[in-house]
Design a protein around this nucleic acid. Structure first.
Length: 667
RNA sequence: GGGGUUGUAGCUCAGUCGGUUAGAGUGCCAGCCUGUCACGCUGGAAGUCGCGGGUUCGAGCCCCGUCAGCCCCGCCA
């Protein structure tokens, strides 16, 4: 098809803005054809641009035959420039913002054609792999346009907020230094320095601290961060943080600049949130909600029921009661008729979920229309039942579920089921007040979880590791514990939680070199290693570092919650799959041998393979073809048993071969 | 690294107990159609049943392996 040129054509209006007031005006519009409805001698076409949709029309009586023929040739997603007169419609469409008017075409330019799309743009139910492969088409959809627009608004409001508070935006390096602790780094090989690597930042943590030493006092950056770990629905390998740091502040000061921003952002999506947000010590969060990021849209709390079963005939529970506090019986009660009348099948489903969370089972007691039903009913004498109800504060119908074990085990089971079960019950509970108690779906439940432990014992590493990061200040009251009882030392660290998601986290930092050295020592980083890895930080702290602290918000996650979607990919223009792949560009992919050589990742002329056992390995890593040739070479040289080194050049020619001593293997 | 789940026409899916030529809706193509807006009507084209192997007289269906998407655990200072 012959295409028309845009020339000096300019739009006079946005498609979505046209109203009855414009009737009679000649307008010029641009956009994509959403759909053509060809009725023969009457043709309708919906034209879409970023701002909306308007109907174009032409018919045999009034339109030029050539124009009508051209219009009939238009297919979905063709790119058009049109001229026409705004007119009131004969038959209006109340479902459309521009439904009272239509454009009677006087001119039509086809700026580009479009092949039939691989998937329909108006179907919500298209496979995500297909959407990601054709992300540029996926992004034409209204939902994603809306999400990315919201994201842009959030970023702009955030910049405005911190600018008003006199923060300075500073950019920090993307090519930086790999540091121990934390997530796996994405590495970038250095061409200039053979065998050495940059790391992409997991966060600009140290740089923003150094900017405080430099005297900026208030820093902000909206920056990309990278972590090479396995992904989840709310996690991407590269993600965006709103990163802030302030000097001469306490925890409350940092929280004080974040809260009004959250209030403002919530308002963007029509939610009223009141600050200050609740502060919940980590210990209470775990005790009441079984989570360090509790979803407070659910008002239910976990209760301790250990003492009730000290004399019980139910061995599982009594054993916990006799365990001197090592193990406990914890309970969660869901009030209401809906909970009291849950079917056996549903309860079995919960039991299965509990098992997946590591529990042996899920003991329950349910009070419904027919009285008590319980998995341990034979151990519940009427007096025990009454004591149980009194202890858990139960008055009416409902369901109590129990977990037995260590605090960590029971928290995991009950913390998870608390939200899942409550959400399900809230949809079927007929009492609206009770339904809201179970799960207030419309709420934005912000809170701060504070007083995190500073350190956590790692079985894997057989040492303490920092819960937050190793620059977090110990709680001033717990400083002495650093040497005597590190596990009990609290941190001045705080997480911002929204609806069960961690949307931000921060801390007051260590600002003197001596405390920082003590911290490194406690987590097993020796003097020499600390010098090598963090020498610049220790230096900086020794030149008049002010007390400082800050916080980082997860922008993607925050926008995801504001947009009301349950997947972070829905708020990222070009996200990666759960396997950290880009289906559109096919990244990551292999690169030229030449590039590898330049980066010293592949040796130029020769490759040496250690050959033996079942297979062979190469220190340099080579092509499968070369390895196959290496295997052949060694088997010809040593027909019976051997292991050795074979060196080949790039063409697979034998340069050197030698047998190694030690145990030998059959080829 | 582990567990679960999905993979059949461009798309969304059905496909019974292993048995004839693998179906539907939608999209696409063609014709008709003056008030549509998920336009309608008629007709047509369209398949590596993810890939590889196996069992069987016979496999979309059963078995083994593998790849990819999604969810979860581990992991994510």
């Amino acid at each position: 098809m012959r295409l028309d040129q845009l020339g000096d054509f300019q739009r006079t209006h946005r498609n979505g803005d046209l109203r009855l007031d414009h009737a009679g005006q000649t307008v010029r519009l641009l956009g994509w054809c959403r759909r053509v409805r060809n009725l023969g001698s009457l043709v309708f076409l919906d034209l879409r641009d970023r701002w909306g949709l308007v109907q174009l029309v032409a018919n045999e009586e009034t339109a030029d035959p050539a124009l009508l023929a051209k219009l009939k040739a238009v297919r979905s997603e063709f790119v058009l420039a049109v001229e026409g007169v705004v007119a009131e419609r004969q038959s209006k469409n109340p479902n459309m913002a521009t439904g009272d008017v239509e454009i009677r075409l006087t001119g039509l330019k086809i700026l580009n054609t479009a092949a039939p799309l691989p998937f329909p743009l108006d179907d919500e139910n298209v496979g995500e792999d297909l959407r990601l492969t054709y992300r540029f088409l996926d992004l034409r959809r209204e939902q994603l346009q809306r999400n990315l627009r919201l994201r842009s608004d959030v970023a702009n409001l955030t910049r405005e907020h911190f600018r008003d508070l006199d923060f300075i935006e500073v950019e920090t390096p993307i090519l930086t230094k790999s540091t121990p602790e934390g997530a796996r780094d994405y590495l970038v090989p250095s061409r200039v320095h053979a065998g050495q690597f940059f790391a992409l930042p997991q966060s600009p943590q140290l740089f923003k601290q150094l900017l405080q030493v430099s005297g900026f006092e208030r820093y902000i950056q909206i920056c990309r961060c990278f972590r090479d770990e396995d992904l989840r629905a709310d996690r991407q390998p590269e993600f965006t943080q709103v990163d802030i740091e302030m000097s001469f502040v306490r925890q409350e000061d940092v929280q004080g600049v974040i809260e009004p921003l959250m209030v403002r952002l919530a308002k963007v999506v029509g939610k009223d949130v009141t600050a200050p947000f609740p502060r919940l010590p980590y210990r209470d969060a775990m005790a009441w909600y079984g989570s360090d990021k509790p979803d407070l849209r659910c008002g239910l709390k976990i209760q301790d029921a250990t003492a009730l079963f000290a004399e019980s005939g139910f061995n599982l529970f009594r054993a916990a009661a006799e365990s001197q506090g090592q193990r406990r019986v914890r309970a969660l009660f869901f009030p209401g008729e809906a909970a009291g009348s849950l079917s056996r099948k549903v309860l079995d489903g919960y039991q299965e979920q509990a098992r997946q969370l590591g529990a042996g089972g899920l003991p329950y007691a349910k009070w419904g229309k027919d009285g008590l039903a319980s998995s341990f009913k034979k151990f519940l004498e009427p007096a025990d039942e009454a004591a149980l109800r009194a202890s858990l504060g139960i008055t009416g119908e409902g369901l109590a579920i129990f977990a037995v074990g260590t605090d960590a085990q029971t928290s995991r089971v009950l913390g998870d089921l608390r939200v899942k079960v409550a959400a399900e019950l809230a949809t079927i509970e007929s009492d609206p007040a009770l339904s809201r108690l179970l799960m207030d779906k419309n709420a934005y439940a912000f809170l701060w979880v504070v007083d995190f432990p500073l350190l956590d014992w790692s079985e894997e590493h057989q040492r303490f590791i920092a819960c937050h990061h190793p620059f977090t200040s110990p709680h001033p009251d717990d400083l002495e514990l650093l040497e005597t009882n590190p596990g009990a030392c609290r941190a001045v660290a705080y997480d911002l939680v929204l609806n069960g998601f961690e949307v931000g986290g921060g801390s007051i930092r260590i600002h003197d070199a001596e405390t920082q050295s003590r911290m490194f020592r406690t987590i097993g980083i020796g003097e020499a290693e600390a010098r090598e890895k963090f020498g610049f930080l220790l230096d900086a702290l020794s030149y008049g570092a002010p007390p400082h602290g800050g916080l980082a918000l997860g922008l993607d996650r925050l926008v995801m919650l504001l947009a009301g979607v349950d997947n972070i990919r829905e708020v990222i223009a070009f996200p990666k799959t759960a396997q950290a792949r880009c289906l559109m560009t096919d990244a990551p992919n292999s690169v030229d041998e030449r590039q590898l050589r330049e980066l010293h990742l592949s040796q130029e002329a020769k490759q040496t393979y250690r050959v033996g056992a079942v297979f062979f390995e190469s220190a340099e890593g080579g092509s499968p073809e070369l390895r196959g040739q290496a295997l052949q070479q060694i088997s010809q040289l040593t027909p019976r048993q051997a292991q050795g080194l074979v060196t080949l050049d790039a063409q697979g020619q034998l340069l050197d071969a030698q047998t190694l001593s030690g145990p030998t293997f059959d080829f």
